[in-house]
Amino acid sequence: MAPAALFLAVFVAWPLVKLLLDSLYQIAPLAGTKRYVGFGNYRNALSSPEFVGSAERTAIYTGIVVSLELTLGLATALLFNTLGRRSRVLRTVFLYPLMIAPIVAGLLWRFLLIDNFGIVNELLTRVGILHTPAAISWLSDPNIVLFSVGLPDIWLTTSFMSLVLFAGLQNIPGELLEAARIDGANARQRFTWIVLPLLRPVIAVAVIVRGIDAARAFDVILIQTNGGPQQKSETLSLLIYQTMIRYGDPGLASAMSVMYLLAMLVTAAVALATIWRPGRSQA
């Protein structure tokens, strides 16, 4: 335990302490100056429309991505469960996007959705859903871009949801469902009254795990739109990166990071405390 704890202390906790300290200074890295400003950076961040806007967008993005993944994941898990063992080959196909680098997935979806030569709109036009391939500008329409940049993430990790939920479904005792059936419960009733409540902890864990990842989304969005158009797909990770690296304001960026991290910890902690008992209790 000690070496791992030491490792995490040096390479995670120590950078976090540095981050906390930096957030109290105004730093000009090129000039090499550092000035204590107390909570000035925090005030600046909270009063800047960029920070508030991208915090909102991060929340919306996470909400969209996770709820779609949950819905699709649950639907496919139910399909796999109903169809039983013989669906295993198809489960394998379902698994593969999980292995693909987010940067590649983002690039791939940018290519699929790109204006003028993207194949998605071409296919939608051919099957008659769109009048012309130019009808939807997935990545250049500011009103829908936040949804579009989430597509790769949904594609990448719906299978995670699906497999986790499938495993959860397999753990539901068959006798329970059989008994309910004999008592005259139809499929929908069995789902609402037995499957969902029993699945709830699994769903909760899967949603938390995915939520944390989605809220940190960086590379997928960077490669698709770099936060545009009109910064409508700029999430907190992107904003912090740009503030820190491109605009050379580490103090402000650190203050943003601290608030971002705190918000995530609080959200996750609330969720964890209510449904997850860590440690040995799992055995």
Binding site: P15, L16, D22, R216, L265, A268, G279
Partner: peptide, 19 residues
């Protein structure tokens, strides 16, 4: 310790990247 490790998983890489 496990809780600590889980918290470490929540840290956005962009936050500790520059330090």
């Amino acid at each position: 310790f496990i809780m600590g490790a889980l918290v470490a998983r929540m840290v956005p890489p962009v936050a500790i990247g520059v330090p």
